[in-house]
């Protein structure tokens, strides 16, 4: 798969980033170099290897179904200026 401007723009859209022309121009050769280096993993045969999503085996843990006070509304809203009537306020949905 060729790493080109169109692919980077597609990835950026998925990642909710508006890259400038300058950024794309700078990133393109860097990303090519990096991905070429990363692709050397292909040399390893991992056909029968299970993936390790964690470094140590994690077991499912449970907690008792007891309700506790949640974050007070005013505290939850304390780090935003976009709020109205006790709700977070966002841009238009439509």
């Amino acid at each position: 798969m060729e790493i080109n401007k169109e692919l980077i723009q597609k990835i950026a859209r998925n990642a909710r980033l508006n890259l400038t022309e300058e950024e794309i121009k700078e990133f393109l050769p860097q990303l090519k170099e990096i991905l070429e280096a990363f692709s050397t993993l292909d040399k390893l045969n991992t056909a029968k290897t299970k993936p390790s999503f964690q470094p140590i085996e994690i077991k499912n843990i449970y907690q008792d179904d007891i309700s506790e006070p949640s974050l007070p509304q005013d505290i939850a809203l304390s780090n935003t200026k976009h709020k109205k009537n006790g709700f977070f306020q966002g841009p238009k949905a439509l």
């Binding site: 990363f38 692709s39 993993l41 292909d42 390893l44 290897t49 993936p51 390790s52 470094p55």
Partner: peptide, 17 residues
């Protein structure tokens, strides 16, 4: 791309561990 990069890396992680 997920199999070639992300999943591959997770498998190589197993080899490293």
């Amino acid at each position: 791309f997920r199999n070639a990069y992300y999943l591959k890396a997770m498998k190589v992680r197993t080899l490293i561990i």
